[in-house]
Design a protein around this nucleic acid. Sequence first.
DNA 1: CTGAAAGCGCTTACAG
DNA 2: CTGAAAGCGCTTACAG
Lengths: 345, 345
Amino acid sequence: MTRGRVTSFDVAKEAGVSQSAVSRAFNSGTSISEKTRLRVEAAAEKLGYRPNAMARTLISRRSNMIGLVMADIVNPFYPAVLDTFMRSFQQLGHRVMLFMVARDQQVSDVLPQLLEYQVDGVVITSATLSPEMVEHCQRLQTPVTLFNRYVEGIQADSICCDNIGASRAIADLLLDAGHRQLAFIAGVRNTSTSQDREQGFFSRIHERRATAPLKAEGHYQYQGGYEAALALFAGETKPDAIFCANDLMALGAIDAIRNQLKLNIPEQVSVIGFDDIKEASWKNYQLTTYRPRVEKMVNTAVENMLERISNPERPALQLIEAGEIVIRQTARLPETIYQPIVDER
Amino acid sequence: MTRGRVTSFDVAKEAGVSQSAVSRAFNSGTSISEKTRLRVEAAAEKLGYRPNAMARTLISRRSNMIGLVMADIVNPFYPAVLDTFMRSFQQLGHRVMLFMVARDQQVSDVLPQLLEYQVDGVVITSATLSPEMVEHCQRLQTPVTLFNRYVEGIQADSICCDNIGASRAIADLLLDAGHRQLAFIAGVRNTSTSQDREQGFFSRIHERRATAPLKAEGHYQYQGGYEAALALFAGETKPDAIFCANDLMALGAIDAIRNQLKLNIPEQVSVIGFDDIKEASWKNYQLTTYRPRVEKMVNTAVENMLERISNPERPALQLIEAGEIVIRQTARLPETIYQPIVDER
DNA sequence: CTGAAAGCGCTTACAG
DNA sequence: CTGAAAGCGCTTACAG
């Protein structure tokens, strides 16, 4: 065991081979005899040698690092997303440089920092990206993937869950069950997720010529959902069903409806959420909600990313991945069998 | 705007200066005239130049990257920890390379990968580290910090919340309030956090010659807490107060006690948790719990880490940071004023 | 299969 | 203050 940094030259001397041989021993697909490889490996083991990734990146122009930009880690949907991304990248031998952007921060502030470190690609979750930044990435041949976001006419992969389709299906479910006055609790106003969920829900209700839904805003937070529910019931017309743009708000709404308004769920009010976070399946809530296929979305995002890294010419893909409604206890159902997707957890 | 990678030589040519001058313009504390700096900056801006961090790291032996190893991101306590670490490091100009270790994975599997990338330091959260690995890091002069974990006789900084003191205080609170038969729901058996919380709780009860507490195991999960509570009440002697090794289990226990056992909290049973996760303050729970000073712990960890990076000779510090009990609605209190720390959120 | 050599893009003594 | 040059630790044609 030596101390300090051990280089390939030290290993070469120890093994009695050239420094090139050491490098070859650590790279697959190189021409090296089994005998030499073994000698190098023994020497490397003895000295505690590991190749310096910085030097490798510099010369090979591949860092094996992916930049991952997240916002809103406090929303319980995103830890699961992060976890899935991490597993996926790690398993495929990629490192992840993580960035967290605050709500008031732009991705453009952190992207240059990421690119300094020669990341092979950038994944952006729950934050948006300016066209200028995309152009910059393109110049550097660095692929960009948007997760659960999209920007029109941009040269970046994007993979979203089917926000519009899901919300339309939820509108149908509630109307078919005989609800008369629907309501929507929106998330953060200027996010595409909240906007799309609202649009799908409202447009389907309009198409079916049902009463226009009520609306309140809950900023994607528990407390916001709680207060939004109170606000909805404080008005003249009261809703008999509420669709919330995420689960966190739905759980807040449930607590407000049950504990403060003393109404029964689902007998007097139905509540449906979006995300299927862990808390949604807690015994106390048993929330009926929409579950995006997070694992599939992440795996697709990762696969496409790696593919574009090896082939930067490939045009960008915009994908939508449908999820499923998870039927639990907070919404009344239509009489006709609804192909319910029962909670299988 | 050029395409492809722009180097300091390109900028030098554009600005009509030497490549060294470009480098100096991008490093503070170097001797360069204001005039030259401005010319370089203009040229860099024009060409879209950013220094290559890999080359910089190679020559300067400082990557400005910290390796952050986490397990258990799904436990809602850790997203907050991660978030706080990220903010802290980012604010101080450091990048973070994130690693997630699965429950069955050792830190020793990922540490070499981290060190390949020349991280300046490693922070390990909720996972343990073998002495060999610590030795390896020491040889590379790479400081290691354990967060909420400690290993005896190891050359690594460690910062923990006061698990033992907190649990003793909780035992006192419950006994002083007149509870007769306490119970403990343990987390994951072989973690130091669960063990310390158990030890503090049990030892204080023993010291006060109160009835020995009951015990069940909940694996730090909601469902585990739910079932552990049921198990405790299925026995001959029933508890009148339960201390749970984390909030997640406490919330499960509450749901089991209220919804399934139909007992009132805190009139018939008191429940206290640990962590003060967001969910603990939800209207439906209002959990009395122990709140570690996460922000302070993280900031201390970060400060010490950066200090040890600049001075690797500094001996390792083992710190314990006390938190506070947050009084909400799930535990009966002593009659005497208890200096209660009211929930200020 | 193997080694000598060039070069990735920087920082930093060194000399002026 | 400024520039020419060495060197960080690798990979990869190139020649043998």
